[in-house]
Design a protein around this nucleic acid. Structure first.
Lengths: 257, 257
DNA sequence: CGTAATCTTGACCAACGTCAATGTTCGTGG
DNA sequence: CCACGAACATTGACGTTGGTCAAGATTACG
């Protein structure tokens, strides 16, 4: 298998087995419905289906090819690394999230993305985006709306980092992530799989690992949230939300790519 | 002058004097060029031109009318307030920035926006957005690209809040803001007008007012940056950028609305 | 079963927030 | 033009939060 330049790490998955026509994400009903024509256009953009092991780079810092991605299975994180070596996790990507559009649309390097669990994703041809939007303006609007929703939640995280203390930050992050998991059918209201490490949590909420631990323990002692062996448990989500000031954002059917 | 519900605070400006056709922003050449037809469509969307005094709410928390705005003159801040009363400034809005799209596109309340200086802005009819994008898909793509750029800089601010210390945060914020001012022809490389108060800076970088002051003083003592009577001066922007780890993002012609 | 990664905890130190007092700027009315 | 008051800026002292270092326990994995 020959890699073409910067993009395309990850082994090829069983492409024939995962066609857009029977994409489980699309058929789940959790995302914006797609017309037949739209589906056809997307199917023509799909180039490969890639498989990544935990810890693999899905997108490397500076990757700038004319492709972008949709996460199909597994968890990933988008992050940024500083000169000092410190890392800030910008968001947790779940199945259905797309990323790496900046190179295609802006000719600008994308931020790195790393697989947390085993993950697979669709690799799509960014050069066809212009055509897609011209043929399906509704799709463009839906993507813009989804992107706007993304901005809103980035703003919520900004507020969390700027104005909450350690315990609230961690609780907020857990509550928000659990909410997203639940909405995508990946968790119950009171808990679900949680493959992030302590260091990942710390890098997401802007704390040192040790202090994030202390916050986590405080939440555990209060019976608000607990992570044990890659499982998150939140006995009373409402109480947790109240404790840390989390309020769920109504989410419309995300546009999927 | 009768206000219609939630939107439309601010007095009406001289509407006849500021038509889209001779909009100074558009004609400055600093933004994405617009075709005649696009311009016509925008002109038809423009409902009013509003004037705000310093401190006025341009958009109130929860406003949800089918209108959105383009800042035409002056500075504004978009922010979020917590239960505790604390405020986080999410971004500084400069002439040419648009905001308040969420209600129109998502039917979701927008985040509040407040004028910092005297400010004027265009009030546009969000119900015509669908039509605009269908007639001008290129425009939709450009907006999506601009929005993507906005996400990128939100991510940069996220990293700043999560992983930099006080002095770096303030320096980063000043460097980034000066850069934006300069790109819009509102400042020189070594300084320009800076109407934000100390408390605003603190709320933007996630520090207490007192501690933000200390950071500011540290920068001043090192000869890196100084704010005096609403004027920012940065003797050596390159040195400041190096000191705080700021790197300017290449910006393509922003789409304007 | 052994090794490496991760988790957990304690002790200590630096960064940041709070309180409070004083100086300065800015707008207003005389 | 000056006087006045209110908002804003500045600084010091001190308490709290969070970071760093380091050691030991637990888990994951070959």
């Amino acid at each position: 298998m020959q890699e073409s330049g910067t993009a395309g790490r990850g082994r090829d998955g069983d492409l024939p087995a995962i066609r857009c026509a029977n994409c489980l994400l699309r058929r789940s009903g959790l995302f914006r419905p797609m017309s037949g024509k739209e589906l056809g256009a997307i199917a023509r953009m799909k180039q490969r289906h890639l498989v990544f092991a935990p810890g693999d780079d899905i997108l490397r810092c500076g990757d700038c090819g004319p492709t972008f991605y949709t996460l199909y299975e597994g968890w990933a994180v988008r992050y940024q690394r500083l000169r000092s070596g410190a890392r800030q996790i910008l968001d947790v990507l779940l199945p259905g999230d797309w990323f790496g559009l900046a190179p295609s649309l802006l000719g600008r390097p994308a931020l790195p993305v790393q697989a947390v669990t085993r993950a697979t994703c669709c690799m799509l041809d960014g050069r066809q985006l212009g055509r897609l939007f011209e043929d399906h303006p509704r799709y463009a609007i839906a993507l813009l709306a989804t992107q706007l929703e993304g901005e809103r939640s980035a703003h919520a995280r900004l507020t969390m980092l700027g104005r909450l203390r350690a315990e609230e930050r961690v609780g907020y992050f857990l509550a928000g992530t659990l909410d997203r998991l639940q909405r995508r059918g990946l968790a119950e209201a009171t808990g679900g799989p949680f493959p992030l490490r302590r260091a990942d949590i710390a890098d997401a909420v802007g704390l040192s690992k040790v202090h994030a631990m202390r916050a986590l323990q405080a939440l555990r002692l209060k019976g608000l949230a607990e992570i044990d062996r890659r499982e998150l448990r939140v006995a009373d989500p409402v109480r947790l939300a109240a404790h840390v000031g989390y309020e769920p954002m109504p989410e419309t059917g995300r546009a999927i790519l």
